[in-house]
Amino acid sequence: MSRQFRRSTRGSSVLLGSVLLIGLVVVVAAAVGAAAFDAADSSPTPTRPTALSLAVSGDTLSLTHEGGAPLDVESLAIRISVDGEPLAHQPPVPFFSASGFRPGPTGPFNAAADSRWTAGETATLELAGTNDPDIELGATVTVRVFDGETPVAALEASAS
C-alpha cells in the first residue's frame, strides 16, 4: 500500500508542477501583453512634418510656411527670444492688436484672416517699442512654434 501511495504522490507532483508552470507562463505573458498595449496607447500621435522659415528685418518678423501639413493658427503658440532672452510680451496668434506688437499683423497671424496656414503663405508681425528686448542689427532671433504642447518648429535668424 505504501508503494501505491508513493507512486500516486510522485505522479501528482509532476502534474501539479506542470499546471503551476503553465499558469505562471500565462500570467507573465498577460502582464507583458498588458504593458505593451499600455505603452502603445501612451505614445504620441505622429504628425506630418511642416517646414517653416524665418526672416528678420528691423522689428519685423516674417514666417513663411515652406511646405508640409497646413497649420491651424488658432491652436498655435509662438515664443520669441532675442539673443536668448524671451520677449516681455509674446504674441497671441491670431491677433489684430496685442501688447508689445504693432497692430495689424499680416497673413494668417491676423485675426481677420483664414485660420489655416498653408504652404506658400507668409505671416508677419512687428514688435512695438513697448516690447523688450529690442532687436538690434545682427541680433539672433529665435522663434519657436508650438501646436498646443507639440513643438512644430524652432527657427533662428539674424536681424538685418
Rank of each mutant, 00 (worst) to 15 (best):
W117E: 04
A29I: 06
D134T: 02
V93L: 14
V14F: 06
Q4C: 13
S42R: 13
E149K: 05
V28F: 08
T150N: 15
D134L: 07
F109N: 06
S81I: 04
A34H: 10
L137S: 11
L76W: 04
P49M: 01
R79W: 04
L21T: 07
S57W: 02
G148C: 12
D114E: 12
V141N: 05
S53I: 04
G33F: 10
A119E: 07
Q90E: 11
V145A: 07
A30F: 11
V82A: 05
G84R: 04
S2C: 10
A39M: 08
P105D: 00
P44L: 03
Q4D: 15
R10I: 13
D41F: 04
R10M: 14
V14G: 11
S2D: 14
T142H: 02
A40P: 04
S53Y: 03
A113C: 06
T64V: 05
L21Q: 10
S97V: 09
G148Y: 05
S97N: 06
I80S: 05
G104D: 02
V19N: 09
A39F: 05
D72P: 10
L15D: 13
F101W: 03
L16I: 09
S2V: 07
L21P: 14
A35M: 13
R10Q: 14
P44M: 01
V28D: 12
P70S: 01
A128D: 15
E149D: 13
L20G: 11
A55P: 06
S57C: 05
V19I: 14
T47L: 12
S115W: 02
S13F: 07
G33C: 10
G104V: 00
P46N: 00
A123Q: 08
T50P: 14
A88L: 08
G23V: 04
P86R: 00
V145S: 08
P105M: 00
S53R: 04
R144M: 12
I80E: 06
S115I: 03
L61Y: 00
D59K: 01
A98L: 04
T45P: 13
R79E: 12
V143Q: 09
R48E: 15
V143G: 14
A153H: 03
R116Y: 03
S160K: 06
T9N: 15
G23R: 09
T118F: 07
R10G: 15
D41Q: 10
S62C: 05
S97I: 01
S115G: 02
A36K: 08
V73W: 05
A111T: 02
A98T: 06
L76H: 05
T122K: 05
A31N: 13
F5M: 15
V143N: 10
L20S: 13
V56E: 10
E74T: 13
T64R: 10
